[in-house]
Nucleic acid binder design. Sequence first.
DNA 1: TTGAAAGCGATACCAG
DNA 2: CTGGTATCGCTTTCAA
Lengths: 363, 363
Amino acid sequence: MPRKADVPARRDVRLKDVANVAGVHPATVSRALDPGKMWLVRPETRARVQSVARDLGYRGDAVARSLRRGQTTTVGVIVADLSLTFLAPVVRGLTDALERRGFMAVISETQDDHERLRASVENLLSRRVDGIVVTAARLGDGPVLEEVAAERPVVLAVRTLAGTTIPSITSDDVAGGYLAAKHLAELGHQRIAQLQGPPDVQPFVDRRRGFMHGVEDFGLELVSMDETAIHPTPSEGQRLMRMLLGEGQPTPTAVFAHNDSMAIGALAAIRAAGLACPADVSVIGYNDAPLVEHLDPPLSTIAFPGESIGRFAGELVIALIEESSSRVASMTFPPELVARASTAPPAGERRRRRTNSKGARNG
Amino acid sequence: MPRKADVPARRDVRLKDVANVAGVHPATVSRALDPGKMWLVRPETRARVQSVARDLGYRGDAVARSLRRGQTTTVGVIVADLSLTFLAPVVRGLTDALERRGFMAVISETQDDHERLRASVENLLSRRVDGIVVTAARLGDGPVLEEVAAERPVVLAVRTLAGTTIPSITSDDVAGGYLAAKHLAELGHQRIAQLQGPPDVQPFVDRRRGFMHGVEDFGLELVSMDETAIHPTPSEGQRLMRMLLGEGQPTPTAVFAHNDSMAIGALAAIRAAGLACPADVSVIGYNDAPLVEHLDPPLSTIAFPGESIGRFAGELVIALIEESSSRVASMTFPPELVARASTAPPAGERRRRRTNSKGARNG
DNA sequence: TTGAAAGCGATACCAG
DNA sequence: CTGGTATCGCTTTCAA
């Protein structure tokens, strides 16, 4: 049992109580306790009020304040799934930026489901959040979000949306895809492929585009596969990689998985096929999620500054909240190649010397 | 610019507006829209009101409702750091349980700092959350949390606190530690050690205790090292492992790291010392965090049902909120050994086994 | 079955 | 510099 020390464990103390004890009007207490208005109160009174408030253990009622002020100092954060490890830094930067400014994050998961996104948004709006940061936008979500953005600040983070006017803080996924192709080309790969993420998520579209540019620019041969992952998960990555290895086409010597999760699945598929990475097939992922540097082999990947993106998204949404007329400024951060052991030069020479028939090892 | 379709993008629609259009009193609208009270309204009126509400795009104001009802249907969730990957399933289960019951999670990070925990709690209370789930409790936090628990439902998850009356949902870390020792003993290890997490976090204390029990029960030799990690991170794990390898004492053939992060650091230290895992030293971690199965080598570890723990914590806090008299029921879930490639019989044992095995070929 | 009226707790404008 | 007073939007007795 906790001690009921000096702080009365009684029912919540209200402004009026403080006023009574301090012998002043509630309005005065309100002013004396508001950092932005306490200068209106005579120092003596202010001190007395503050001391009484402290003694009574007074804790402002944010609900009442919100009702009166029409501001909740709360921001809704919509994520597809908190288990997505690459989101951790983003959410970290975001919540940090928010807390630093006195805002709190209320988090809602959508599992990348349109309906759930709609429900989340509705829920958040009815809770009167001052703004919303969406990291889980998918293609069809445009209209809903635009509608919301008409009444409240909305910021897209990580995932932008084609042809939207909603400001977004992202990394340049086209550049990232290009970087992946460039890396593979520089290692000497000629025949490469990509494991594509869901095409209704803008970053995947962009990564694809960037990668294709690279393929052209560097004169690579693309083992094309139109199939895309239903979800960007290890199991889907495994499925696509299996397809790729099983196709009639020649096996690529390197693949670009649109994210690290799919890359992990790809590694599994490669092993399952009796091949080795990077000896037989190089693999590069995307996101530089936590731990992928410790994988077997350590995963080459494209990193983006998640924490910064989260932080800026937080700051932007607050800016929009505080001066809603603010110019809509999107930001794009450059991604970065992180070369590790899962990518290496192709074993082309050796293989070519031994046999001319490609794919002979796909047992 | 979004279309201002049928839904008036005007200022928020209030209850009164609906009442006016529907030609009834606001109180009637309130009743007609409250699932728990709509039976008080004549079906015709109800239908009309609901239809008007829909047409106007009416969205209840949760802030006003909260003020009036003294309930926010909001639960504070305190975590040390959202980047802790083993928390992802916990938070997942938690938010899912909450949303399912119409509650929302507001998340606050403490970075395992006492002051920040205090501030978080204060902030959450002033926002009038209906309850709090704490996954970041450390030893000194008892008093603060007890005090809070006296006014509002508080539930500890993942980390319990010694000698507290606050209900907690955890896994049995003593059993987990024991399991680790047992696993190593069964593999034939004789000389083992542990990399200890911070002693002011109950789970680490328990894992240590359980491990020690196991050491005794199985008659193992413990290479003891009193040093504990400042934070349970890879770098600290690496530091401790380095110390262990450098000491005057004989090198253990297996170590139990109090969590996966430290285990990862340990693996690095082992490599850095020119040794191999599991050939020279076996390593077992704790948590079965996402991806550790893909490490090099795949990490043996002790798993706990994070999602269930989160889910039950959510359900418990809601139960406490709804019937605050409810009996305080803590729950403990059993952990489970997940044996992977980072643990194997010790070098000597392997040889001996080969020699002694029936049908040995070198006879 | 519906209406009237009283707040929930805090803030902000207007007087004094 | 401080007190009065009117809401903020909704829920909930209490009457009718």
